[in-house]
Amino acid sequence: MSRPERSVHIAKSMKVIEWLKTEILDQIANLYKGLHHANRSLIQDSLASLVVATYVLAKRVGFSYREVDQAVTRKLREAARERHQLEDWYGDLSDLEEYISKR
């Protein structure tokens, strides 16, 4: 890749990363709106968009989707082991870990 092409590629990558960061913030705002108005469709759409944007951002900064899944699994196991309240009260963390491991 020539010097000008490399500069354009780097600039484009940086622009995409910045866009993804704003997309995440926008979806968090939409999630709050959905929760405030009890709008299930908006809540679901915002959560899905957050997951997608997170995976794509991870890829743009150098992580594979598999690495993200592995990090999430490690985080879930660690939190469950440390008796996180969500795990103690609802078992959410072990449920999510089981779901991810079956994908």
Rank of each mutant, 00 (worst) to 15 (best):
E78F: 09
W19P: 00
A53G: 00
Y32D: 12
A53C: 08
K12C: 10
A58R: 07
T54Y: 05
E97I: 08
Y99L: 12
Y99C: 08
I17Y: 02
K21V: 14
A80F: 01
V72R: 02
I24K: 01
S2V: 07
L76D: 02
H84E: 10
V52E: 07
I43P: 01
L35M: 15
I24H: 04
E78H: 11
W19M: 13
L35V: 13
D92K: 02
E87P: 04
T22Y: 08
S101D: 06
I28S: 05
R3P: 05
V52H: 08
T22A: 02
E5C: 05
M14Q: 12
I28Q: 05
I100A: 01
K102G: 06
G34D: 00
E78G: 05
K21Y: 07
D88L: 11
W19T: 15
D88F: 07
G91M: 04
S13K: 14
H36Y: 12
V8E: 15
S13E: 14
A11F: 05
R103Q: 12
A48K: 13
A48E: 09
A79D: 07
D95L: 04
R81F: 09
Y90G: 09
Y55N: 00
R6G: 08
L86S: 05
R77N: 11
K59P: 04
L96Q: 01
M1Y: 14
I28G: 02
V8W: 13
R74P: 06
I10H: 02
R66P: 02
A38F: 06
D45K: 15
E23S: 05
Q27K: 09
Y99W: 13
I28W: 03
E18L: 14
K12T: 12
L57K: 02
D88T: 11
A11D: 06
L76M: 02
R83C: 07
Y32P: 02
V72Q: 02
L93I: 07
R3I: 09
A58F: 09
L57E: 04
E67V: 04
S41K: 14
I10S: 08
I24C: 01
E18R: 15
I17G: 03
G91W: 01
V61T: 15
S94R: 05
K33G: 04
H37D: 06
V51D: 01
H37V: 08
F63A: 03
V51P: 00
S64W: 04
R66E: 15
L25S: 15
V68R: 00
L47R: 06
L47Q: 08
S7M: 07
M14V: 14
R83S: 10
L31P: 00
D69M: 04
F63Q: 01
V8Y: 13
A38W: 06
S41Q: 15
S13N: 10
T73E: 15
R3V: 07
A71C: 14
W19Q: 14
L93K: 00
